[in-house]
Design a protein around this nucleic acid. Structure first.
Lengths: 150, 150
DNA sequence: CTTAAATACGCTAAAATTAGGCGTATTTCA
DNA sequence: TGAAATACGCCTAATTTTAGCGTATTTAAG
């Protein structure tokens, strides 16, 4: 559990990259996929989702088009982003879909899992994208940090 | 992200079931898989892991054998359980393995993801299995809870 | 007016992960 | 001695994730 998938990685990379640009400047999907060597299609799709489903970005068509951050990252949580990228989130399907579970009726952990799910959601809602992505002040990077990658 | 897998579900079910028994009484894997209609092999394997890797349970061999909770659930966190069931946990592989990522070197979110991972780990460490599984009046339930099942 | 570069999107295939089952060995009680 | 339980390696099916292809639409530039 709790693994970040590629799409969310690409979204975070793109957002961080764009957040470091001059306000108003456009960023194309190709620019991002080139900068980070991420697959173009997947990168582009994620940026589309952030533009359309999330309203995080504004898309500009045409030859010199691209995207631009329109939301204040301080007011958007990682939970919001995840829901844009992956849709409704829950520890188990039965919490947000009317998916009948095979063991429905006998399951004894609905209540615990629901409670945990609520706590976890609160946690993700408490982390803003600005907290997460935007470099604040000094905080010099430790040399060990840049070594381990992924 | 953040989906609970079957093995963890079976582990939680078994633990909750066993926690409601008279202290000292044994519970076999078959008993659990019968009670909740979970696949026997997967259920048994999970209980073996909790006994061997985690030391959560004590196994008794032979015809009338079974398992018994040996750890104080108040002193064990959901993080501990997840690590027993799934091994080392991290939002991305590169944080706990020397798995070279394809985009190593260009990745710009190592630091943010590391920070988030640490926060998340702290969160899971803060939730004990007793909090989660043992019925009390606490663990404040939120509105839409116990209605939707699965 | 043509071309190129960008967003938008449906469809398909490959890869990886998850989930389950089979066979067998070992232990212990009756 | 047999039945029921733990223990465990291996293999297959199912599901999810990931990536790529093709095409349409929009718009700037030459």
């Amino acid at each position: 559990m709790n693994k970040i998938n590629r799409k969310l990685e690409y979204a975070l990379m793109a957002l961080k990259y764009m957040s470091q640009k001059i306000p108003g400047e456009l960023t194309s999907a190709k620019e991002v996929s080139d900068a980070f060597h991420t697959p173009f299609d997947a990168t582009a799709r994620v940026m589309q989702q952030m533009a359309q489903k999330g309203g995080f970005l504004r898309a500009e068509y045409g030859a010199s088009g691209g995207y631009q951050i329109t939301k204040d990252l301080a007011k958007v949580s990682i939970h919001d982003l995840v829901e844009v990228i992956e849709g409704p989130t829950a520890l188990v399907k039965c919490l947000h879909k009317e998916v009948p579970c095979e063991i429905q009726g006998t399951c004894n952990i609905v209540s615990p899992v629901t409670a945990l799910n609520n706590k976890l959601t609160d946690f993700y809602k408490s982390v803003s994208l600005k907290d997460l992505l935007v470099e604040r002040t000094a905080m010099p990077k430790k040399s060990s940090e840049a070594v381990i990658h992924g």
